Amino acid sequence: MTDALPLTPSEAFELLLAGNQRFVAGAPEHPNQDAVRRAETAPGQRPFAVLFGCSDSRLAAEIIFDRGLGDLFVVRTAGHVAGPEVLGSIEYGVSVLDCPLVVVLGHDSCGAVAATRAALADGVGTTGYIRDLIERVTPSVLAARAAGLTQDDDIIAEHVRHTVGLLLDRSRVLADQVAAGRTAVVGLSYRLADGSARLVTTRGLPAEAADAGTDA
């Protein structure tokens, strides 16, 4: 089905980075995407990472990290905003599926962040549940503003950091897994133009593994 031995958080992160590097280089291997893998994973799943990312159509997780069936437990919302359903899904991934890695994936030119910035700048409200989305992104944008950050990349990075902190603050299950060394949480920022995923923040990942991510 999957690797016989469970991966450490560092090994899982390295595996994820390796896939992204292949994607950036234009040399994907498309692992675990054949009939054999389909049969292997039919009885059950053991993904090596929970990937919580933005719903943006350009962030298809298995493509940009060059993975396949049963590799990633994917949760996506616009602007990677986290409500109870998201928290429950992530807790399922780490406590039931034993994923050693949780990834928060943001990206440049994020529509949810741009809409929030616009709403704060001009005071124009939105309708429907988009308003709820903007309200959930607002603390990140305000924190970036308070820190004097004005560039899109810096504001996106702040939103990624805020999301990582929120997950750990609100989920005792996840926080306990990280404290015990069983799981690490990393925040990545994806560049749409070149396809690379850059490390923004990490909780529970050894320094040497985090250093490798800065070159992603």
Rank of each mutant, 00 (worst) to 15 (best):
residue 86 V to K: 04
residue 86 V to Y: 02
residue 86 V to Q: 12
residue 88 G to T: 07
residue 88 G to N: 11
residue 90 I to P: 07
residue 91 E to I: 01
residue 91 E to D: 11
residue 93 G to K: 07
residue 93 G to R: 12
residue 103 V to Y: 11
residue 104 V to A: 10
residue 105 L to V: 08
residue 105 L to Y: 02
residue 105 L to E: 06
residue 107 H to F: 03
residue 107 H to R: 03
residue 107 H to G: 01
residue 108 D to W: 09
residue 108 D to C: 07
residue 108 D to G: 14
residue 110 C to I: 01
residue 117 R to M: 13
residue 117 R to K: 10
residue 119 A to S: 14
residue 119 A to C: 05
residue 119 A to N: 02
residue 120 L to K: 02
residue 121 A to V: 01
residue 122 D to C: 05
residue 125 G to R: 14
residue 125 G to D: 14
residue 126 T to Y: 15
residue 127 T to E: 11
residue 127 T to D: 10
residue 129 Y to E: 08
residue 132 D to H: 15
residue 134 I to T: 10
residue 134 I to H: 02
residue 135 E to N: 09
residue 135 E to A: 15
residue 136 R to L: 12
residue 137 V to K: 07
residue 139 P to A: 05
residue 139 P to S: 04
residue 139 P to R: 02
residue 141 V to G: 04
residue 142 L to F: 03
residue 143 A to T: 13
residue 143 A to L: 13
residue 146 A to V: 00
residue 149 L to K: 09
residue 149 L to W: 00
residue 149 L to V: 13
residue 150 T to M: 05
residue 152 D to R: 09
residue 153 D to Q: 13
residue 158 E to V: 14
residue 159 H to Y: 06
residue 160 V to P: 11
residue 160 V to I: 12
residue 162 H to W: 09
residue 165 G to C: 08
residue 166 L to P: 05
residue 167 L to Y: 03
residue 168 L to V: 12
residue 169 D to Q: 12
